[in-house]
């Protein structure tokens, strides 16, 4: 999938509350589905083992079909650096995640493919999860610039790391072009590093 960077200032949609802390990327996307040369079709395998083990898993709940915003607890996406995990979520239609905290690699990988991971307080996440469980049709809207999140009557403030936030707003969340922009400076740094020239 080629991402043509474009500004992301606001995300909106119905939510899916996924309760639990330290949900690792092996659970989001079990390793056997990484035996492939493309990311295509990964959305079919999101939480596959957890869903089989637990019929009441939120990803099995038809009330949340069509959700666009995932609401999670602490340390979501810990473990393996596999981009296959956020790729699966994006391909399933998720446009943002709101959680208490994220693994750094997961949050970075998500940003690289245009999916902001907003961080909010434990109390606010609990309220948001409870609200979605009670009224699955409630529309959640998150503003990238201010971190303001609304869902029905609920108002909360979440945060994005400043650089990621600015990247979404400017449309430069996919940085390759920027990194290639002044390549002479890259060569200059390389030439100053003694190990590059073999000491």
């Amino acid at each position: 999938m080629t991402q043509q960077p474009s500004a992301i200032s606001r995300v909106s949609g119905r939510g899916l509350p996924l309760r639990g802390s330290d949900i690792d990327t092996d659970r989001i996307m079990p390793a056997r589905f990484l035996v492939a040369v493309s990311f295509e079709g990964l959305e079919q395998h999101l939480f596959e083992d957890d869903r089989k083990a637990d019929p009441a898993h939120a990803f099995n709940d038809p009330r949340f079909d069509g959700a666009r915003i995932l609401v999670v607890n602490t340390n979501f996406g810990c473990g393996s650096s596999r981009e296959h995990a956020p790729q699966g979520l994006v391909r399933a239609g998720y446009t943002a995640i709101v959680g208490e905290s994220f693994s750094e690699i997961f949050q970075g990988n998500s940003a690289m493919i245009g999916m902001p991971c907003f961080v909010a307080s434990h109390e606010d996440i609990e309220r948001l999860q409870a609200l979605i469980e009670q009224t699955p049709d409630v529309v959640i809207t998150a503003d990238v610039a201010t971190g303001a999140i609304t869902a029905g009557a609920l108002r909360l403030t979440a945060a994005l790391p400043a650089a990621l936030r600015d990247g979404f707003l400017s449309g430069q969340w996919n940085p390759t072009a920027m990194l290639l922009n002044r390549f002479d400076e890259v060569r200059a740094v390389a030439s100053r590093l003694p190990y590059v020239s073999g000491f």
Binding site: I105, M112, I113, A163, T176, L179, L180
Partner: peptide
């Protein structure tokens, strides 16, 4: 460790955008 989009960045530019 990095993700696949970052592997692309390193291949293309030998650089990463990091905090």
């Amino acid at each position: 460790g990095i993700g696949t989009s970052q592997v692309r960045d390193v291949l293309a530019s030998q650089c990463l955008a990091l905090d």
